Amino acid sequence: KKRTSIEVSVKGVLETHFLKCPKPAAQEISSLADSLQLEKEVVRVWFCNRRQKEKR
């Protein structure tokens, strides 16, 4: 599977969401993915990776 490069503008939206809610529910991930025209899996993994980054 190819890596998905995420646009800077999209990263901004994801970051804003992350600050409000670092662990979104599946439904939130779905609606976020739809509005950003990304796959749900890509958004889910982004949040996973972002949470791990917080720990470091």
Results as ranks from 00 to 15, higher is better:
residue 56 R to L: 11
residue 52 Q to H: 11
residue 2 K to S: 10
residue 12 G to E: 15
residue 26 A to W: 12
residue 42 V to N: 02
residue 51 R to M: 09
residue 17 H to P: 00
residue 47 F to K: 00
residue 41 E to R: 04
residue 24 P to S: 05
residue 30 S to F: 08
residue 51 R to G: 02
residue 8 V to P: 15
residue 51 R to W: 09
residue 36 L to D: 09
residue 56 R to T: 12
residue 32 L to V: 04
residue 46 W to R: 00
residue 27 Q to K: 10
residue 55 K to P: 02
residue 50 R to N: 02
residue 45 V to T: 15
residue 42 V to I: 06
residue 39 E to M: 06
residue 45 V to D: 15
residue 18 F to Y: 10
residue 49 N to I: 04
residue 20 K to S: 06
residue 13 V to W: 03
residue 56 R to C: 08
residue 45 V to I: 05
residue 45 V to K: 14
residue 52 Q to A: 14
residue 43 V to I: 05
residue 2 K to Q: 04
residue 37 Q to P: 01
residue 22 P to W: 10
residue 10 V to G: 03
residue 34 D to H: 13
residue 15 E to Y: 00
residue 27 Q to P: 03
residue 23 K to P: 03
residue 43 V to G: 04
residue 17 H to T: 06
residue 43 V to R: 03
residue 31 S to K: 12
residue 25 A to L: 09
residue 17 H to S: 09
residue 3 R to H: 09
residue 46 W to T: 03
residue 28 E to S: 03
residue 21 C to P: 06
residue 13 V to G: 04
residue 36 L to E: 02
residue 41 E to K: 05
residue 37 Q to D: 13
residue 22 P to R: 07
residue 42 V to S: 07
residue 24 P to V: 00
residue 26 A to F: 06
residue 7 E to L: 10
residue 31 S to E: 11
residue 16 T to E: 15
residue 20 K to N: 06
residue 28 E to R: 03
residue 48 C to K: 15
residue 3 R to N: 13
residue 16 T to D: 14
residue 14 L to D: 02
residue 26 A to G: 07
residue 24 P to A: 06
residue 1 K to L: 15
residue 16 T to A: 14
residue 16 T to V: 06
residue 9 S to V: 10
residue 42 V to G: 04
residue 38 L to R: 01
residue 41 E to D: 13
residue 11 K to L: 06
residue 35 S to H: 15
residue 36 L to A: 05
residue 52 Q to R: 08
residue 11 K to P: 04
residue 28 E to G: 01
residue 45 V to A: 13
residue 22 P to C: 06
residue 5 S to G: 15
residue 26 A to E: 15
residue 40 K to C: 10
residue 46 W to F: 00
residue 46 W to N: 02
residue 45 V to C: 09
residue 30 S to H: 03
residue 51 R to N: 04
residue 2 K to P: 05
residue 9 S to Y: 10
residue 20 K to L: 06
residue 27 Q to E: 14
residue 34 D to T: 06
residue 56 R to D: 05
residue 47 F to S: 07
residue 37 Q to H: 13
residue 26 A to D: 15
residue 22 P to Q: 14
residue 2 K to T: 09
residue 45 V to G: 09
residue 50 R to D: 03
residue 38 L to D: 00
residue 56 R to E: 15
residue 27 Q to C: 10
residue 56 R to G: 08
residue 47 F to P: 00
residue 43 V to E: 02
